[in-house]
Design a protein around this nucleic acid. Structure first.
Lengths: 216, 216
DNA sequence: ACCTGAACACCGTTCAAGT
DNA sequence: ACCTGAACACCGTTCAAGT
């Protein structure tokens, strides 16, 4: 226990990232401290400053990683049972074309990502990081959003969504799933299980799609 | 400047609340400290503990006040120019009945509240307060949500929204406006002015309404 | 190159002592 | 009753000194 700590050599940064995420998950970002991160990484309290400018830089790295994972989750929208239970499907209406399915699935993927990585979402959106000081973070966030815009455009080409500014439609969809995700994480939706939340999200996305398709 | 501080007598709590909100608005909840609140209130750093159990209790009071103000904002949805520009209106379709107007207006009011009091919204939704330990807060939050549910029910009685669980519809609407509000506060929507945001929100609410009305 | 321990100016919270 | 100053165990960050 009083064993002398060996020097930690090699890439400390990923180790710090993992420790940071686990710590935020446990105590929340408010109680999150650099010294505790260092303790968990088994290094002295100021070693992180060799690799990161400061606490914000560590959180910016967490946020950047979060946007990269989100982008991956959004672009791999594998259809699941929840989506199969989608209303138009249930009625046997064969109008749900592939791009529209992917668009809706990405919405579900957003919420699922948020549930699995609430600590990431929190740092990504609710930690007041000066975005312009972290270009990597800004770029990762832009990439994630552009995937959603691309899905809207595909659905437009397919004829599932109306012509018009894809960015506007993407922002509305993003707002909906972001709201669902944030409220769900904060336990404000009074939904029991993840399955129930996914069903509810599917319904919300169906409503949004119907509204987008008919609205003029 | 070295003048001896007179004792502060009377109700310190409201003074602390005002100071707390101003401080959070300036530095964010992460950098928010009890000692600085006390400094701004012109009292010694530990005086607040005579009135509040701890830092969380002060933030819980801020959140409670926020929900009370939100409830007020939602129940006084005065129609404004943005809503008047709503699509159905623009086309002269006279189908927008009063309860539906109030429902949409409350959505706009939610976003407007968020823009005017971002610090309240942040504490209300993103500070990990153990809700069950602050019954006043929990009750205020429930009251605010119930107003939205009531608006949905009125719109259902009026025939503007389909029959069915009002709570489910209210949750979906809440998610949308909450997402818009959070993303707007975080400057993630790339919208220039408040007017632009209100127009965009109006469009989103129109889409949601159309989707709700037609979805089955 | 990378890490450490001591140091500084902070925090949240408590408590005996003052008015 | 209400407030204060000193105290304790923390934090973020820096820096000279070690391997």
């Amino acid at each position: 226990m009083t064993a002398k700590r060996p020097y930690h050599h090699g890439n400390l940064k990923p180790v710090l990232l993992r420790a940071a995420i686990r710590l935020i998950a446990e105590v929340g970002p408010a109680a999150f401290t650099m010294r505790e991160v260092a303790r968990r990484a088994g290094i002295s309290h100021n070693a992180p400053y060799r690799h990161l400018q400061d606490k914000d830089a560590l959180l910016a790295a967490v946020a950047t990683e979060g946007f990269e994972r989100l982008a991956k989750a959004l672009s791999k929208p594998i259809m699941e049972t929840h989506t199969a239970a989608s209303a138009t499907e249930a009625r046997g209406v064969a109008e749900e074309r592939p791009a529209l399915r992917r668009f809706k699935a990405s919405g579900l993927a957003y919420v699922r990502f948020a549930l699995r990585s609430p600590e990431h979402l929190l740092v990504m959106f609710d930690w007041p990081l000066p975005l312009n000081r972290y270009p990597d973070l800004e770029a990762a966030a832009a990439r994630a959003f552009s995937i959603l815009v691309g899905l809207v455009q595909e659905a437009q080409r397919e004829g599932s969504l109306p012509e018009g500014d894809a960015i506007v439609l993407a922002r509305i969809a993003w707002s909906l799933v972001h709201g669902v995700a944030k409220l769900a994480i904060g336990k404000r939706l009074a939904l029991e299980s993840e399955a129930e939340l996914m069903n509810s999200t599917t319904r919300a996305l169906d409503i949004l799609y119907v509204g987008m398709a008919r609205w003029r």
